[in-house]
């Protein structure tokens, strides 16, 4: 396996990242809020072309970290630079644009738009990017064909299998040519065989197109597809390095 070019300038850099959730206390007398810290001083640098697995027990803060990296959520303190840009300095509109152009997010539960064809699901990010409907559909069809779903373009999500839905979601994540794919347990809802196929797709994207991929998983054999492992425990990074063989 020849590794793709990895540049020195990190695509993702986070420094002392903390996340504290404030919960409304159910206690009537107190009436205040209860703070629960989920991420503690996370430091990470991920370079272009890397393929990283994030592992950890349930509740260790993996999704929280991924949502912050995906600009879906904001940290309580600390810094996050995406491709050199300080995310905290961006407006809501600029964040929407970053999610649209720079990042492709793949969810465990697929999160496709219901009652919309696979083709339209894949095309929607392009519409938000200002591309015409016809051009969006053309590009979406190309991607569906690439992921082997050309025949299913007119199907709605509930007419597709889990593996097929996840391929649609990956096509959607790719449609705007992002530098970064974030996948939160993308194989969590899939059987072993389908999981392997999906991982093969990610691996191919990383190796052939040099797309940076960060994915969360519980399973060692899924992590084995990647080349770097970040392990979280109770909101802290406890391991960052090679994937154990």
């Amino acid at each position: 396996m020849n590794s793709p070019q990895v540049s020195d300038h990190p695509l993702i850099r986070v420094e002392d990242l903390c996340k504290i959730y404030s919960l409304e206390s159910g206690n009537k007398q107190g009436g205040g809020t209860v703070n629960s810290q989920v991420l503690y001083d996370v430091n990470l640098a991920i370079h272009r072309g890397e393929f990283v697995a994030v592992m950890g027990h349930s509740g260790s803060g993996k999704s929280t970290l991924m949502n912050i990296l995906g600009c879906l959520d904001t940290p309580t303190s600390g810094h996050y630079w995406l491709d050199g840009r300080d995310i905290a300095s961006l407006s809501d509109d600029e964040l929407a644009q970053v999610r649209n152009r720079n990042i492709g997010f793949v969810f465990q539960g697929f999160n496709l738009l219901k009652r919309m064809t696979a083709l339209d699901n894949v095309a929607t990010p392009l519409l938000y990017a200002g591309v015409s409907r016809a051009a969006s559909r053309k590009r979406a069809l190309e991607l569906l064909k690439q992921t082997g779903l050309g025949k299913f373009a007119a199907y709605q999500p509930n007419q597709l299998s889990g593996g097929q839905q996840q391929r649609v979601a990956i096509s959607r994540a790719l449609v705007n040519n992002p530098q970064l794919i974030l996948a939160d347990e993308p194989t969590g809802n899939l059987d072993t065989q389908t999981s392997r196929e999906i991982m093969a797709v990610f691996q191919q994207l990383n190796q052939e197109q040099g797309i940076t991929i960060v994915l969360v998983t519980h399973e060692d054999d899924i992590a084995a597809f990647t080349r770097r492992l970040v392990r979280l425990q109770d909101g802290r990074v406890v391991h960052d390095g090679r994937v154990p063989a």
Binding site: L72, A96, R99, L113, T124, P125, Y128
Partner: peptide, 16 residues
């Protein structure tokens, strides 16, 4: 709400 979340995740801004 979920649909709105998905749309935002794939790049819809508040105005859209």
């Amino acid at each position: 709400t979920r649909e709105i979340g998905i749309r935002m995740a794939i790049g819809a801004n508040r105005r859209a």
